[in-house]
Each structure stands twice: as structure tokens, then as C-alpha cells.
Design a protein around this nucleic acid. Structure first.
Lengths: 178, 178
DNA sequence: CAAAGATAGTTGCGGGCGCAACCTTCCGCG
DNA sequence: CGCGGAAGGTTGCGCCCGCAACTATCTTTG
């Protein structure tokens, strides 16, 4: 149900093309690839986030943090580690965790080994929520994105984007500090 | 110069993988493709936006609007058309145009044919700025993104994303103005 | 051991963004 | 002609986000 308001036929336009002026030698494929990436991300992200918010009251970022906690060693991580893994700023992580704590989805307790640090730990309710939320989320991503792609295309995307995002690529784990 | 703070070695983990629970059958390639898309977009977008803001005082969205105006028929468009073309909400477009107007980069004047409507028209200063801004912007996208890709990969991306973003796809050309 | 510097988190602030409410102007139909 | 609904824009509001400033706690080193 990601309806799309403001959709117009549209003419040809070209916004992104300085062209012959002497500097960018972008082919149409370049423009399609780059602008398409931007557009696609915008569309999918909006729809997914809206769905997630409506059904589970979680933003995409909150789900990511919850998911990382769920996958972590003792279901807990330091905020800095979460920030590093997710690519969010520490301040954002701090606030999201604060919000999740208020909702009784995670607990925050001092790290015994370092008084400055905090362990954010997902609890039972959080774990339950993350599971159902991810279920619908995955299904949506599948339907909205992967179902429109061929197997080889997925391979190429994985290869390309894996090159840029060593961070999450794998995912995880956490061998990390703890 | 897109330095990357908070970069950790990171191990294998999986945050995004419910796995065998019975619903998502995502392969690792799926995860790499999707999460990589998210990550890549986040990184590139942040770096590009920061650069654009620092050098020209324009956000990515503002540049897009300016570019679309520059490429439009009389260097002018209705706000609704701009919103539809860019995928931004009308309210955002209204405010961005307002900001650009204050900076004397565009003019806003009533549409003779429809008293409700407004024509946002880019002026000389705006045109000059958009050119230089796009020059550096294109160069950065080239360096940060395309230079890391092979020709066939670009083709695949163009093909894939063109499927999702009929909107901007076209682009351009440039027979542009002037 | 004490001071300088690094690190973990928190919070004030401002920017970007969309939704919904609102006004004005058009349009279509009785 | 007049009225109700649609469309173009604007603005109030609240969410998400990062930066910078600040506190508290290590860590390093003379």
C-alpha cells in the first residue's frame, strides 16, 4: 500500500546534466543509475518506514538497533558500538535507546568494567517485537524490492554495495568488545 | 575527503537475518544488496550533502530543484510540478523555494493563467550557482561512486533503478537552455 | 600520583522532511 | 448563477538526524 501521491506523467527534463560544458561526461546510464538510486531509496524507505511506524511504532533506525541488540552476544551492546555498527550518530543512538527504554523494550545498565559506559540490553518484549516487526519488514522489502529483481541483478547489487558498506555487510556479530 | 569516523573492524553477525524461523529466505546476497544499498546511500548522501552545503550553501534537494528549474522551458515551473518531479512534498518545495527566493536565486511570480498557481523562476545568479554547484557535485559523485564501479555494473544499476524511478529517469539531456 | 588527553554518553540546538489543516481560486453541474 | 468539490500553495507541528558543548570516567605519562 505504498501509494504514491503526486505522480505526474512528466516530460523529459533533465535536471542532472551539465553536459557539454566541459566537465561531466555522464552517459544516460550514469544518470539513471545515480538518480535512480536516490529515487529508489527515497521511495522504498518512505514506504517501509511508514509501514513499520504504523504497525509497530518503530522507525527504521529503531528496528535496526533492536535487531543488532537481538543478535549481539548477551543481547546487549554499548551505545558507541551500536552507533559504529549502524552508521548513526552516537547522539541519535542515545535518544533512540532512551525511547526504547521508556517503552520497556530495552534496559540500560552500567557496564561493570567501565563506569562511563552503558549496556543497552534488549529484553523479552523487545525480542518479541523485533521478531514480528522484522517479519513484516522483510516481507515488504521482498515484495517491494527483490521481487522486481532478477537473481543476477541481486548478485551485482550485493557485489557493488558490499564494496561500499563493509560495515553492516556482514553483519555482525559481535565479536566485538562487549 | 569523506572520512569515516566510527569505523570498526566488525565481525560476522547478522542483525538482519531472522533466518530459519520460517519466513524470510534471504540469502547473504540479499542482505548485502539491501543493507548495502541503505548504507551506501547514507554514506554518499551525507558526504555529498555536506560538501554541497559547505561549498555552495545548498542542500541536495535545493540543488535538485534549482537544476530542474534551470532545465525547464522558461526556466520556470509550478511548485506542484517541481514536487512531482523531485519526489519531495509540496510543503518542502514551497519552503525551499522560499529560501532560494530570499537568497535571490529564484523569483516567484503569479501564473497569469491560474491565480492559485505560482511560477518559480530561476534567475541569472541562480543559474550561475547551479552550474558551479553541479560541476563540483558531479565530480564528487563520479569520484565517490562511479569510479568504484565497472561499466557493466553501471549498466545493471541503471537498468534496475530505472525500473523503480520512472520519474527522474529521463533526465536529461540537455538540450538545455541557453 | 597528578595533570593532560582520550573515550562513553547526554543534551541543546537547528536543519530537513512530511502530514494535516487552512485559504484561495478553479471547475463542473444543476 | 451559485454551490460543492478539486487543486495550488502556505504554514503549524512533530519526527528524525547530526553537530557541538558538557560531564564523568578512563588512560597515559612525566
Amino acid at each position: 500500500m505504498p501509494e504514491d501521491p503526486t505522480r505526474k506523467p512528466q516530460a523529459r527534463s533533465c535536471s542532472y546534466e551539465t553536459d557539454e560544458d566541459g566537465l561531466a561526461h555522464w552517459t544516460e546510464a550514469h544518470a539513471d543509475a545515480w538518480i535512480g538510486l536516490l529515487e529508489t531509496h527515497k521511495q522504498l524507505t518512505r514506504a517501509l518506514d511508514a509501514e513499520l511506524t504504523a504497525k509497530h511504532g518503530l522507525s527504521l533506525s529503531a528496528l535496526e538497533l533492536l535487531a543488532r541488540l537481538a543478535a549481539a552476544d548477551d543481547r546487549q551492546m554499548h551505545l558507541t558500538a551500536l552507533a559504529g555498527a549502524s552508521g548513526l550518530s552516537l547522539s541519535r543512538v542515545s535518544r533512540i535507546i532512551g525511547m526504547l527504554e521508556e517503552r520497556k523494550l530495552v534496559d540500560r545498565h552500567a557496564c561493570p568494567a567501565d563506569a562511563r559506559a552503558v549496556h543497552a540490553q534488549i529484553n523479552g518484549d523487545g525480542l518479541a517485537l523485533v521478531r514480528t516487526a522484522q517479519a513484516t519488514h522483510f516481507a515488504s522489502v521482498q515484495a517491494m524490492f527483490f521481487d522486481q529483481l532478477g537473481e543476477s541483478e541481486i548478485q551485482t547489487l550485493a557485489q557493488v554495495f558490499g564494496r561500499f558498506a563493509p560495515r553492516s555487510a556482514a553483519a555482525c556479530d559481535t565479536g566485538d568488545e562487549r
